[in-house]
Write a protein that binds this DNA or RNA. Structure first.
Length: 887
RNA sequence: GCCGGGAUGGCGGAAUUGGUAUACGCGAUGGACUUAAAAUCCAUUGAAUUUAUACUUCAUGAGGGUUCGAGUCCCUCUCCCGGCACCA
């Protein structure tokens, strides 16, 4: 008999699987392909986290089952190895990051192999390998050499760009540069003073650095940017074509932040007091989602960065005051600017006015930092009667509040929230109305509120009917939006417009340990891309990896590397010294697995066509607006250029919940509550840990770790081993166990497909409990049970399988099929209810007729007691379930 | 503030999508084995009432509703978790 002894057998089988290569994905097999993917790990010095295991094991179970279902399965692994922690460790220990990475990968490999996932190691990739990042650089250059063609709504080669004829060479170059999908710009970016690195918007969380938590500062720097905004619409729309967890979809949609409205152009009039002429008539464009409220616009606000302030300097009568305000705003960090949200500040631009195009009224122009330069046009029309922020501002500075949307007689009461004296909310949504039930009815409360809106004492952001709006009067909000937009377009005052919160991707980093950006900067030719034959542009050796405070990459110090000849004109030029962000290599790695050794292409078309798209992709929620969005963007770009055959890279995306520490907190070194997978595996064995991580709770939910519960899984496997004594080869399978077996096959099959591992395991336990009650067990039943269990516990099942006398690995067997006929129980428990309450139950044949069931119910002694002297109103029969007597 | 998701025993969690609530596991209690402990095995384990494993009543965050029947559907509220947030 086999005693459960994981330490003895697990290593043995891991070596055996390695040797026999049974998990290798076959290119161009006749079998149907299945590509499943986990986010490739970052090989940190800290080693593997139990959270890594959760996703690796889950997808491993799916991969193993799919193989047994006859699929040609690709389940690859690699290393996302560029990044700051490695660099910091290298600086601290004065070791080359290459060496650090190599050591970490070695450790990670050992750890990963120790729990037996069925990765195809032959396709292993590493983003820091020049053979890999050659193609990361190549894709970057493709972006550099492409523009977005709005007409065909896709990216195209920059050669196809229509360049206006009348431009001189310099202007031409500028024009082209302005259209590249990878472009350079000088802009204020978020800078982490602690990591000494620029951050993408997605990397700033609560105005702090996502990585280290230091408050982000604003720093104006020359930056490489990627025009992800051109893909905003498609990144939203194509979500309809993929199967992602709903929360992932909504998070991406919210991040991209599409809003529809209109742009409106306001003419600007300057006071003639100063006399000097203005060469061109000025105007300011704003973006609004509520063009219907244009008649209620009583002033306009510019962001402090708005260029109108500069261009009309000579016309602003209180220039000193304005400039002082602008200067102050500039010096505020984003943190301060948003922190001061409660109290709005601003200064009026005296001497200039804007003209409201609908009624030609002169309205004041203000500058205030509650208006963001980076969204819309950096200027807004203010409608204080119908916007909370504008209302607040207008109240503070005594500006006119003009109601143009009358909420009365429109839709229902749910446009407001009524608050009674005790502060209890009676209705949800819309605008808050306080209401005193002692001396007014709800209707009166609403009426009073409406009066307040009309008198400018309150704002109303909900819908309504237009008033004080000339030709819009009487229309509903929706109707008015349409009508005014048409009017604006007809009179050339504006047009329908869509805006996104998504910003272009800040792509430069000022660090050593990243892919060098393969661009040469020539005084004569501008930014010149390296040729494909010159790729990869390898990272040079450098004495000091330390980042600088100046915002220059350490690469800038290596003169020999920096000074090169321009590939175009041959004159001396300098290399770009910034490197790429750690998100670059991971934006396309799933494609490299398909053909990881190819030196001619990033992957051959043949392989891409065979394997794409990824059928199942699992990863953390924290990457929803980073990696997941970025890689969808790159994929779409490659799709536009014809390098990949699908518009989306991932057909199905799922997410695992975090594993919390036993105290319910997040695991962290500083809290000292981490669980080291090495130790748990050593103590309990890989199969036990695998089962536990899958059994601990629903896969997508966060669950605290509980070492106590591990023993339950250990006991389960021990009992599986013990069962061997009862197995008899010649024993004919007992029929009574058959329904449960097939029910178990069905449950396990469906649960694995739906990533509901906890209930699959529980069903296997139920089946085992039932097997244990048998005197003898047929080898067939035992074998089928082992196969069902094998994706979860590959080592022990392989061992027991071999002991049954099998030659071929259990992991090469077919997954059992269930027979619906056999699942049907012959006998069921019929539930008898009175008024829906359980009063009796009877064992009956499953196919009992309604008539017989009812008869049986009324015969029951227990039931008789209940229905005595009662009028029976109704009897309900549910097939194979219950009889309900209503009295 | 807005957008998601959630709340079921001492704990992690099940529940065929409206049909026996609490599966499975942990823990706990009692027993067997043992010199003893661990391990293992057996039994019990939502609460109340009760001599009782009988009967009954009450329990799925709170309150209401629909239904023969609600953890599940509808309305309102509370709390927790995640994301976004001066985005016009």
């Amino acid at each position: 008999m086999q005693k459960y002894n994981p330490q003895k057998i697990e290593g043995k089988w891991q070596k055996e699987w390695d040797k026999s290569n049974i998990y290798k994905a076959e290119d161009f097999s006749k079998k149907k392909k299945f590509y499943c993917l986990i986010e490739f790990p970052y090989p940190s010095g800290a080693g593997l986290h139990v959270g890594h295991l959760r996703s690796h094991i889950a997808i491993d179970i799916v991969a193993r089952k799919k193989r047994m279902d006859g699929y040609n399965v690709m389940y690859p692994i690699g290393w996302d190895a560029f990044g700051l922690p490695t660099e910091n460790f290298a600086i601290k220990t004065k070791t080359h990051p290459k060496i650090v990475t190599k050591n970490n990968i070695k450790n990670f490999t050992r750890q990963i192999k120790s729990y037996g996932p069925s990765f195809d190691w032959s396709r292993e990739i590493n983003t820091t390998d020049p053979k890999y990042y050659k193609w990361t650089q190549w894709i970057f250059l493709k972006l550099f050499n492409s523009f977005y063609d709005e007409k065909s709504d896709k990216a195209r080669d920059i050669k196809d760009l229509d360049i206006p004829k009348n431009l001189n060479d310099l202007e031409k170059r500028e024009f082209i540069d302005n259209h590249r999908l990878a472009y350079e710009t000088k802009m204020a970016i978020n800078w982490c003073p602690s990591c000494k690195i620029g951050l993408a918007n997605e990397e700033v969380v609560n105005n702090t650095c996502e990585r280290c938590g230091a408050p982000a500062e604003k720093k104006t720097m020359r930056q490489w940017m990627l025009r992800i905004t051109k893909y905003a619409e498609r990144l939203i729309k194509d979500l309809d074509t993929v199967d992602y967890l709903d929360k992932i979809k909504t998070q991406q949609v919210n991040w991209i932040g599409r809003s529809e409205g209109a742009t409106v152009k306001f003419a600007v009039k300057t006071s003639t007091e100063l006399g000097s002429e203005i060469s061109e008539p000025s105007s300011v464009e704003v973006f609004t989602t509520r063009p219907d409220t244009l008649f209620g616009c009583t002033y306009m606000v510019l962001s402090p960065e708005h260029n109108l302030i500069k261009s009309l300097e000579s016309r602003i009568l209180n220039l000193d005051e304005v400039q002082k305000y602008v200067e102050q705003a500039k010096n505020k960090s984003d943190l301060d600017r948003t922190d001061l949200a409660k109290e709005k500040t601003g200064v009026e631009l005296k001497g200039i006015k804007a003209i409201n195009p609908v009624n030609n009224e002169e309205i004041p122009i203000w500058v205030a930092d509650y208006v963001l330069a980076s969204y819309g046009t950096g200027a807004i029309m203010s409608v204080p009667a119908h916007d909370e922020r504008d209302f607040e501002f207008a109240k503070k500075f005594g500006l006119e509040i003009k109601c143009v949307v009358d909420p009365i007689k429109f839709e229902n009461v749910r446009n407001y929230i009524i608050i009674d004296k005790d502060g209890i909310q009676q209705c949800r949504g819309g605008t808050v109305v306080s209401w005193n039930p002692q001396n007014e009815t709800i209707e009166n409360g609403i009426e009073r509120f409406l009066e307040e809106v009309r008198n400018g004492k309150h704002y109303h952001i909900g819908k309504g009917k237009l008033i004080n709006s000339d030709f819009l009067n009487g229309l509903t909000t929706e109707e008015a939006k349409k009508k005014i937009t048409k009017w604006l377009e007809k009179n050339n005052f504006g047009k329908k417009a869509t805006n996104y919160k998504l910003r272009d991707w800040v792509f430069s980093r000022q660090h050593y340990w990243g892919e060098p950006i393969p661009i040469v900067k020539c005084e004569k030719c501008g930014n010149v891309a390296l040729e494909k034959k010159d790729l990869p542009l390898e990272l040079p050796e450098v004495k000091n990896y330390e980042p600088t405070d100046t915002g220059k990459s350490p690469l800038a110090k290596i003169d020999k590397w920096v000074n090169v000849k321009c590939p175009k004109c041959g004159k001396s030029a300098k290399r770009e010294t910034d490197t790429m962000p750690n998100w670059a290599g991971s934006s396309w790695y799933y494609l490299r697995y398909l053909d990881s050794k190819n030196n001619q292409e990033f992957a051959s078309q043949k392989n891409i066509k065979h394997w794409m798209p990824v059928d199942l992709y699992n990863g953390g929620m924290e990457h929803t607006t980073l990696h997941l969005l970025y890689s969808r963007f790159w994929h779409k770009f490659l799709y536009d250029l014809g390098f990949v055959n699908t518009a989306e890279p991932y057909k199905k995306r799922r997410s695992h919940g975090m594993i919390l520490a036993e105290d319910g907190q997040k695991m962290s070194k500083s809290r000292g509550n981490t669980i080291n997978p090495d130790e748990v595996i050593r103590q309990y064995g890989a199969d036990t840990v695998r089962l536990y991580e899958m059994f601990m709770g629903p896969y997508s939910e966060a669950i605290p770790w509980n070492t106590n519960s591990l023993v339950g899984m250990s006991r389960f496997l021990e009992r599986v081993c013990k069962l061997q004594i009862k197995v008899e080869t010649r024993f004919i399978a007992s029929k009574s166990i058959e329904p449960l077996l097939h029910k178990t096959i069905k449950k396990v099959t469906e649960d694995i497909d739906n990533l509901k591992f906890n209930t699959a395991i529980s069903q296997l336990m139920i089946f085992l409990n039932s097997l244990e009650k048998e005197e003898k067990i047929s080898a067939t039943h035992y074998s089928q049970f082992l196969i069902l269990l094998s994706p979860f516990a590959p080592h022990i099942t392989e061992e027991l399988w071999e002991m049954l006398g099998n030659q071929e690995s259990i992991h090469l067997q077919s997954f059992p099929k269930y027979n619906l006929e056999l699942i049907k129980e012959k006998e069921i428990t019929l539930v008898i209810q009175i008024n829906g309450k359980l009063r009796d139950q009877k064992k009956v044949p499953a196919d009992i007729s309604e008539e017989n069931a009812k008869k049986l119910a009324f015969e029951s002694v227990k039931i008789k007691k209940w229905i005595e002297n009662k009028e029976i109103r109704k009897v309900i029969f549910v097939k194979e379930r219950l009889v309900n007597i209503v009295i």
